[in-house]
């Protein structure tokens, strides 16, 4: 008796947890393959006709292929900002971890502020306007770099602590210049945390809604999340297309998650542990 009860309780709570976390995704998928009239009922009935492909085409073609443009823009922003992020934050984390200087305290406070404080949006818009980067992809990329530097630096710094300093010494004796020590000896050894950084930050930046909303308004600059937000008001009567759009937005992180599960988990928990 005493052995079966925990099993039953555990089983039930598991089933409940599974349902709670799976049902919404099932719901998304179901509406996305229905016809317009069926989807408007918003229930769990299976569709009479599976319109996966038709709905997909309809969403892609909507507003003159706006979704394709959005994917292109979001991808561009993500790739560029993550590339810059990785290089710059690795450099900062490296020197912060390796060298004692009075700038370390400054850098540490800056990282902490960056992790905690929200950006001052309107002054940032003012500043971007004055340097001609408002509503530009370049501006957006640099903003993403600025806002996500702290987290990436934190990840790198703690990982660099595990790289033996003797390697730096050996490279120094071998005649390596400081930048050669970093790029030829240390950086290749950071691969695991670099992968983590790339994956976690890509998802964060790809999913970012707030910053493009403020800094990248305008039709020609739409991002995936903004498109989805705009479709919400446009498709109040076409739930099938709205949910097809949600489905499409959900797929990239799903794919990344399938391939990089381990690195994501490592990054999320490492970032959580205070540096």
């Amino acid at each position: 008796m005493r052995r079966t009860r925990p099993v039953v309780v555990g089983g039930i709570s598991l089933a409940v947890a599974a349902i709670i976390f799976i049902v919404p995704f099932f719901f998304i998928f179901l509406q996305a393959v229905k016809s317009r009239s069926e989807a408007s009922r918003l229930n769990f009935d299976l569709p009479k006709e599976w319109l996966l492909w038709d709905n997909f085409l309809a969403v892609v073609e909507a507003r003159n292929y706006q979704l394709l443009l959005a994917y292109f823009n979001s991808t561009l922003i993500t790739v560029f900002s993550v590339t810059i992020l990785v290089v710059l934050s690795a450099m900062v984390g490296y020197v912060m971890q390796r060298r004692r200087s009075r700038w370390n305290g400054v850098a540490q406070v800056a990282v902490l502020i960056g992790l905690m404080m929200p950006p001052a949006v309107v002054p940032t818009i003012g500043l971007l306007q004055s340097i001609g980067l408002f509503k530009t992809m370049t501006g957006m990329v640099l903003i993403q770099v600025a806002y996500n530097l702290s987290f990436s630096t934190l990840l790198y710094r703690s990982f660099i602590g595990t790289i033996p300093r003797d390697l730096d010494g050996a490279a120094l004796i071998d005649g390596a210049k400081p930048w050669q020590i970093f790029f030829r000896v240390v950086m290749p050894l950071l691969k695991p945390v670099t992968v983590t950084n790339i994956v976690v930050q890509s998802i964060a930046i790809f999913n970012d809604f707030t910053n493009p909303l403020y800094y990248l308004p305008g039709k020609e600059n739409v991002t995936v999340q903004l498109t989805l937000y705009n479709f919400q008001s446009m498709y109040t009567s076409q739930y099938n297309l709205l949910f097809m759009n949600i489905l499409l937005v959900t797929i990239p992180p799903l794919i990344v998650f399938i391939f990089f599960n381990r690195q994501i988990v490592a990054g999320m928990t490492a970032g959580g542990v205070k540096g």
């Binding site: 033996p164 003797d166 390697l167 010494g169 050996a170 490279a171 120094l172 004796i173 071998d174 005649g175 390596a176 000896v185």
Partner: peptide, 16 residues
């Protein structure tokens, strides 16, 4: 270090 004409073997070996 590289200008001193020395070479060093580390306790941890420090192989790349």
């Amino acid at each position: 270090p590289s200008q001193r004409g020395i070479a060093m073997v580390f306790q941890s070996y420090a192989l790349y």
